[in-house]
Computed example of a mutant assay.
Amino acid sequence: MAVELTAVYQEVPEGFIAFVEELPGANTQGATLDEARANLREAVALVMEANRAMAEEDLAGAAVIREPLRLSA
């Protein structure tokens, strides 16, 4: 089962702003709702990529256990 996050879109004079409630830093904007949706998917991927890179750097040389984490409702 996939993890489900909550995307929030707010219409503003310039178009739409968007963010994910459960993922700080995943926020963006777009001229249209479709553009905001596409940009938000990209923002989520970039935040997760950046978090992984920071964790790798922080844990370099440390003995750690890594394993998949699957969430279900």
Rank of each mutant, 00 (worst) to 15 (best):
V8R: 12
V12W: 05
G30T: 05
V3S: 13
A45F: 07
E57P: 01
R66S: 15
L23W: 07
V44G: 06
G25M: 09
A38F: 06
A36I: 02
E57Y: 04
M48L: 15
P13D: 07
N51A: 15
V47P: 09
A18T: 02
N39Y: 01
A63G: 10
P24F: 11
N39C: 00
E21N: 12
A45M: 14
A31M: 03
R70A: 06
R37C: 01
R70V: 03
A18G: 04
E42D: 13
E22H: 09
M1R: 09
R37A: 05
V44E: 05
V47S: 05
D58N: 14
E57G: 00
L5M: 13
A26W: 04
Q29Y: 06
T6D: 01
E14A: 09
A50W: 02
Y9F: 15
N39P: 02
A38R: 08
E42I: 02
R41L: 10
N39V: 01
Q10K: 13
E22M: 11
L23F: 10
A62I: 10
A50L: 08
P68E: 14
E11R: 15
M48C: 10
A18E: 00
S72R: 13
A63L: 15
R52K: 06
A73F: 07
A7S: 05
A63W: 07
L69E: 04
D34T: 10
A53V: 12
A45C: 02
D58F: 14
I17H: 04
N51Q: 14
A18I: 08
M48G: 03
L69C: 05
E57F: 04
V44W: 11
A18K: 01
E14F: 06
L46E: 13
N51C: 06
E22W: 11
L71E: 12
A53N: 14
E56Q: 15
L46A: 12
Q29P: 03
A73E: 10
V64Y: 08
A38I: 08
A7W: 00
P68L: 14
M54A: 15
N27Y: 03
A50R: 05
Q10W: 07
Q10S: 10
V44R: 05
F19W: 15
A55R: 11
R52N: 13
T32L: 04
V47D: 02
M1Q: 07
A55W: 14
G15L: 08
G25K: 09
E49P: 00
V20E: 01
G61T: 05
L59D: 11
G25N: 08
E42K: 01
F16M: 00
A53Y: 08
V20A: 00
A7E: 00
L5H: 06
E42M: 03
A26M: 02
L33Q: 11
A53I: 02
M1T: 04
E21Q: 13
M54N: 08
V44C: 11
A43G: 06
P13A: 09
V3N: 14
I65P: 07
G61S: 12
V12L: 10
L59F: 13
A50I: 00
A36T: 03
L71I: 14
L40M: 00
L5K: 07
E4K: 09
E21H: 12
F19Q: 08
A55Y: 10
V44A: 04
